[in-house]
């Protein structure tokens, strides 16, 4: 229950950052996907399936605030978080570098999934071009700022999950 509340809280903070912060601050013209970053880091640290389901809600909110095809980001977020919760122990170590690398690679994966689904609904989308010009630099940027977000998530965990630990 506590992890669910923590995920929900971080998702709402991520949503706030997405709709307010991104409007005014864009590094290199790229809007950082804060919600996804929070969800990725939390899943890497806890591997709980419940986070993947919170990810659906986060994705639906992203859908509502962008293209309006409900379920597109919901699916890509869910699939990415589901994959992480199943395989993260294979390559994940709790270090800044490892988590940055993991967020980088999973951001690319999520971008690829969402663009592929988008391509199904909106033919003519230049998938490879979008991957190179938008998804890849964004994933790199998200990988770079991951340590800061990680510190914030750890702070949140100490606040919410301390008694459980």
């Amino acid at each position: 229950m506590r992890i669910f509340l923590l995920a929900l809280g971080l998702m709402l903070i991520g949503l706030w950052l997405n709709i307010v912060f991104n409007t005014y601050v864009q590094i290199g013209g790229l809007k950082i996907n804060w919600i996804l970053m929070f969800m990725l880091i939390l899943t890497f640290r806890h591997s709980k399936l419940v986070i993947a389901f919170v990810g659906i809600l986060a994705g639906l909110m992203m859908d509502a605030l962008s293209h309006g095809i409900m379920g597109l980001y919901g699916t890509s977020f869910f699939l990415t978080l589901l994959l992480i919760s199943q395989v993260n122990k294979l390559f994940y170590a709790n270090t800044f570098f490892a988590i940055s690398l993991a967020v980088f690679s999973m951001s690319i994966f999520e971008g690829w999934i969402s663009l592929s689904i988008l391509d199904m609904f909106e033919p003519g989308l230049e998938l490879s071009s979008k991957m190179l010009t938008s998804t890849l630099p964004l994933a790199l940027l998200q990988g770079l700022i991951t340590p800061i977000i990680l510190q914030f998530v750890i702070w949140g965990e100490n606040l919410f999950l301390r008694d459980v630990a």
Binding site: N18, I19, L65
Partner: peptide, 13 residues
């Protein structure tokens, strides 16, 4: 009052 939450669409609110 706002923009699209993602990088792939040109939406204004």
């Amino acid at each position: 009052i706002g923009e699209s939450a993602d990088n792939n669409h040109d939406i204004s609110l």
